[in-house]
Design a binder for these strands. Structure first.
Lengths: 121, 121
DNA sequence: CCTATAATTCGCCAACTATCGAAGTATAGT
DNA sequence: ACTATACTTCGATAGTTGGCGAATTATAGG
């Protein structure tokens, strides 16, 4: 029950829900999420910690960067149900498609390249 | 997006999640839910209002009693996905099966009969 | 009418949450 | 070593949430 409530509460925040949808297209590092949400690094770090604690995202560290991706293989059934629910429910939402568009230009790029990329859009 | 967040937040509370699972077996009136959760009437009334605002439950008034049931036919796809998610995720949880057992004795009965029924278990 | 029961509304309080900025850690490049 | 960038941790603060009891409304039955 506690695990389920942690999932629901992690999802029930607009910023975190947006991150989950953004991660559907592939992993992002923290600084990319910071740009996406336009929140302070400390706040975003906390959001990602909550998503990780709930089991919704997996993390890896590479050099200076911390990358996040949706939990998938290896995740518990309850976690996978939660991810499927949020993806299915929010797919097509205007706020989400706008995020996907804005984040397009930094997908897969080396973090050192995209610093000026967001300012344009 | 707001509607989705309201769904997630409504579900992300232990008492409200328990109510949703209890309603799976059929409608309950407020006083039955009060007994089930062992919380004050005002608190439970507020919980049910939140579930109703989110679209998760429908209400009807009959005499002195306010009955609640899961939203089903007529509910939006987003709402139905949320209900399916919580039912699927929590089915079999110990806390839930205990609730189902405790509430068995008042299912369908006239509310005037079940006042002493809970005290036994 | 009067009473009892069911439910709602309101105001209060304690606990939790989202946010920030400041300070600290970690890593890469010079 | 020094600097710059990425990230984390901590403390403060404003806002939200969940709980209660008291007061109110609604309905049923003497």
């Amino acid at each position: 029950m506690e695990r389920f409530l942690a999932l629901a509460r992690a999802i029930g925040d607009e910023s975190r829900a947006r991150v989950l949808l953004a991660l559907r297209e592939g992993e992002l590092c923290l600084c990319q999420v910071i740009e996406l949400l336009a929140l302070s690094p400390s706040t975003v770090s906390r959001h990602m910690e909550i998503l990780h604690q709930a089991g919704l995202v997996e993390r890896r560290k590479q050099g200076r960067w911390r990358y996040f991706r949706l939990a998938s293989r290896g995740a518990s059934p309850m976690t996978r149900l939660a991810i499927q629910w949020v993806l299915k429910s929010l797919q097509g939402e205007e706020a989400i498609t706008a995020d996907v568009r804005r984040i397009q230009c930094v997908r897969g790029k080396d973090p050192r390249e995209f610093s000026s990329c967001y300012k344009a859009s």
